[in-house]
């Protein structure tokens, strides 16, 4: 099952490689990984989406926690949470019909066209992974996708609960 893990850790050189190394060393799966400093510059926050059964998940959480740089890790999947991913996608917009279709789809999915070229549109869309996948599927019916970049998932638990020190 897909899980979303939020990790708070020391913002130090080497912290990221320890996490990545741990996942490969223990043959844990990484679907996506995002990391950036938090508002407190001494801390980094990482979101990892992974998959595995309960036993594997328990080990992942314990092993990550065991890393000295890690302050906290929580699995937000089963809590009420907000999950977002950013997609940037460049598509072929070679004629009026395609341009109209792309514009229409972008509106339906509440995305934005953020750049245009002679023959291309670049669309920005945020949402959860399902929404992004659906958008890409829909686009593919109408035109050619030239390139795309996804940020990987970030998430926060809803309500008062917070991951902080």
């Amino acid at each position: 099952m897909r899980r979303i893990l939020s990790i708070l850790m020391e913002n130090e050189p080497g912290s990221l490689s320890r996490i990545v190394g741990l996942f490969s060393q223990r043959a844990f799966n990484i679907e996506s990984l995002t990391v950036a400093p938090t508002n407190d510059n001494s801390l980094s926050r990482m979101t990892i989406t992974t998959s595995g059964d309960d036993k594997v998940l328990e080990q992942i959480v314990k092993q990550v926690n065991k890393l000295i740089d890690v302050i906290k890790i929580i699995d937000i999947t089963d809590r009420q949470h907000i999950e977002r991913e950013l997609l940037l996608v460049k598509v072929n917009a070679m004629n009026d019909t395609t341009r109209t279709e792309v514009k229409r789809l972008t509106d339906i999915f509440r995305g934005n066209i953020v750049d245009i070229g002679k023959q291309v549109y670049t669309v920005q869309l945020t949402g959860n992974a399902d929404k992004l996948n659906a958008f890409i599927d829909a686009l593919q019916h109408e035109t050619e996708i030239i390139e795309s970049a996804r940020s990987g998932c970030v998430g926060l638990a809803r309500g008062d609960k917070a991951l902080r020190i």
Binding site: K55, E58, Q59, Q63, K66
Partner: peptide
């Protein structure tokens, strides 16, 4: 002492 040793 090491939680990751338990139920591994």
């Amino acid at each position: 002492i090491d939680p990751s040793s338990i139920s591994k």
